[in-house]
Computed example of a mutant assay.
Amino acid sequence: MGYYELPVGAVGVGTQPPEADGAELNYQAMPEGMSTFAMPEIPEPDVVAELLEARRLLDEVQSALSDYRAGDPPSLFELGQLDRDNLALVDQLLGEGEVSIVITGQSQTRIQESVLAGLWRVRYLDREGALLRDTLEVADIPGLVRQATFAAAVEHLLLPDAPLPEGVLNAPPLVAELDEKSLAYRPGVEPHVINLTLLPQTEQDLAFLDRLLGAGSVTILSRGYGNCRITSTQTRYVWWVQYFNSQDANILNTLEVTDVPAVACAAPEDIVDSAQRLHEIMEIYR
């Protein structure tokens, strides 16, 4: 399995030169072990003639992709019952796509989109990293992302009573705006986006916002529209969304109020295309 890691120094807070007084800011590092896009290889029919369980499961997955419509609950398929050879065929046919997700907490969940948009591999791990459960999920985004991201998040974002740190100039109005929009947000409402790249934010402003919003449990890396890093905060419905160019320089830094940023989700037309592509693959084995 390949891995992809953006350099820590390219991200939001910490991208500016050090302060003249030598002070340094601490900010959350990028997660390690994110998987990247890899084209699958299609084995010849005679090679996999005996692997009926994998083929039967993928036929069911193809049907679920064909039936899926935006807003539908995810369709879930357990992989734990497959033996090594059948599981290897599933791995080989589905490959690794453009979106990787890590959910941390008392345990960890690692999610990898397949080369078929809208079809996700979801692995549940214990604290030591041992696999507890292995599944496939048909959805625009796996259900756990919507269910768990903000389950323990705070609802109000308020300025501290203490004086603001030196250099914090333009963050307070954004705090009020984020508090208002996050309280008003409901799933299905148009996202509210604050483009920090276009605002006169100091390094201290960004660090202050980072500390106030808190670090959430979900990190998403997407390569669908260039390199994009998406991280949840501890404030309900508030995400950092950051885009990088081919040199991994941060070119767009935003805060987005939504349940899940659209850039992380599979588009309906892409899921339709995935259903057709999987149908064509499985026709080879019929």
Score class of each variant (00 low, 15 high):
residue 202 T to Q: 01
residue 14 G to P: 09
residue 121 R to E: 12
residue 142 P to T: 09
residue 135 T to G: 09
residue 275 A to K: 02
residue 145 V to A: 04
residue 83 D to R: 13
residue 159 L to D: 02
residue 9 G to C: 11
residue 257 V to T: 02
residue 133 R to P: 07
residue 221 L to Y: 12
residue 74 P to Y: 06
residue 264 A to H: 04
residue 122 V to T: 06
residue 174 L to P: 00
residue 186 R to S: 02
residue 263 V to P: 08
residue 208 F to M: 06
residue 204 Q to Y: 01
residue 217 S to E: 13
residue 9 G to D: 14
residue 264 A to F: 05
residue 65 L to M: 04
residue 81 Q to V: 07
residue 87 L to A: 12
residue 217 S to T: 05
residue 151 A to G: 09
residue 267 A to K: 02
residue 78 E to P: 09
residue 81 Q to P: 03
residue 280 E to T: 11
residue 164 L to Y: 11
residue 3 Y to P: 08
residue 123 R to A: 04
residue 205 D to C: 07
residue 55 R to P: 04
residue 141 I to S: 06
residue 216 G to P: 00
residue 30 M to C: 06
residue 162 A to I: 11
residue 181 K to C: 00
residue 261 P to F: 01
residue 35 S to E: 05
residue 112 Q to R: 03
residue 56 R to F: 15
residue 147 Q to H: 07
residue 81 Q to G: 05
residue 52 L to Y: 15
residue 27 Y to W: 10
residue 8 V to Y: 05
residue 129 G to R: 09
residue 118 G to M: 04
residue 85 D to G: 01
residue 246 S to A: 15
residue 124 Y to E: 14
residue 66 S to K: 13
residue 122 V to F: 05
residue 212 L to T: 06
residue 22 G to V: 11
residue 224 G to H: 14
residue 237 Y to V: 03
residue 70 A to H: 10
residue 244 F to S: 03
residue 43 P to K: 06
residue 195 N to G: 13
residue 83 D to L: 10
residue 244 F to C: 00
residue 94 L to Q: 10
residue 162 A to H: 06
residue 95 G to R: 09
residue 134 D to T: 10
residue 280 E to H: 10
residue 110 R to Q: 14
residue 228 C to L: 12
residue 149 T to C: 00
residue 53 E to N: 05
residue 258 T to A: 10
residue 137 E to A: 03
residue 47 V to E: 15
residue 197 T to F: 03
residue 93 L to C: 04
residue 270 D to S: 13
residue 79 L to K: 13
residue 268 P to M: 05
residue 129 G to S: 12
residue 252 L to Q: 14
residue 184 A to H: 07
residue 158 L to H: 04
residue 86 N to S: 11
residue 37 F to N: 06
residue 26 N to D: 08
residue 121 R to P: 07
residue 242 Q to R: 15
residue 282 M to K: 08
residue 197 T to Q: 02
residue 254 T to L: 04
